[in-house]
C-alpha cells in the first residue's frame, strides 16, 4: 500500500529551460554590444546612475543574467551567476512558460507585466526606461514581423543602422562578446 500515495516532485521542462538560459545569455551579450553603439539605448542608460546593475531571473531556478551601467554609458554583461540580491533592480519572470514566450518573441514586456508574468524588486522608477531598452534590443534581435507584435510601436531605428548593428550584434556581440 505504501506506494499508492507517492510524493510527486515538480516535473522538469529541460528543453524550455535550456532555451531560456541561451536567450538570457544572448540578451546579456546583446545589451553589452548594442549599448556601445545604439543612440536610443545610450539615451536611456544616460539617465541610469553609474554602476547601476540590472538583473533578470527566471523563477525559481531557470537561469539569470545581469548587466552593469559603465561610465561610458555602455552596459557590461556580468554573466549568469551574478547574485541578484546585489542588483539595484531585479526583474523576475515568474514561471518557465512565460519566460519561454517572452524569449521566443511571443510575448512583449508590457503585456507580460499586465499579465503578472513578471515582478520586480528594487527601484521601480527605472522600469519604463528598462522596458524601452529591451524593446530596442528586441527590434534588433527579432525580424520586424515578430518585434512589431511585442511592443506598442517599433523604436525609430533607421533601416541601415538596424541591418548593420544586427549583423554586428549576432556575429561579434553574441559570439565573441564585443
Amino acid at each position: 500500500m505504501i506506494n499508492h500515495y507517492p510524493e510527486i516532485p515538480p516535473r522538469t521542462k529541460p528543453f524550455k529551460r535550456a532555451i531560456n538560459k541561451v536567450v538570457l545569455f544572448v540578451l546579456g551579450r546583446a545589451l553589452q554590444s548594442l549599448s556601445k553603439a545604439d543612440p536610443l539605448i545610450r539615451a536611456e542608460t544616460a539617465t541610469w546612475p553609474e554602476g547601476f546593475t540590472l538583473a533578470m531571473l527566471v523563477k525559481p531556478k531557470g537561469g539569470s543574467m545581469a548587466v552593469r551601467r559603465m561610465p561610458d554609458l555602455s552596459l557590461k554583461y556580468l554573466g549568469s551567476q551574478f547574485p541578484n540580491d546585489e542588483a539595484d533592480v531585479t526583474i523576475y519572470i515568474n514561471e518557465v512558460e512565460s519566460a519561454f514566450k517572452m524569449f521566443t518573441g511571443q510575448l512583449g514586456s508590457d503585456v507580460a507585466y499586465a499579465r503578472h508574468s513578471i515582478s520586480a524588486k528594487g527601484d521601480l522608477s527605472y522600469t519604463v526606461s528598462v522596458v524601452r531598452v529591451i524593446n530596442v534590443v528586441e527590434a534588433y534581435l527579432f525580424p520586424r514581423l515578430i518585434s512589431r507584435g511585442l511592443m506598442k510601436e517599433p523604436p525609430p531605428i533607421p533601416w541601415g543602422r538596424r541591418q548593420s548593428l544586427r549583423l554586428k550584434t549576432y556575429l561579434l556581440g553574441i559570439l565573441f562578446g564585443i
Binding site: Y113, S125, V128, M151
Partner: peptide, 11 residues
C-alpha cells in the same frame, strides 16, 4: 518615465 506610462495604449 512614470510607471503608469507602461499600460497606456499609445506609447
Amino acid at each position: 518615465n512614470d510607471g503608469s506610462a507602461l499600460m497606456n495604449p499609445v506609447e
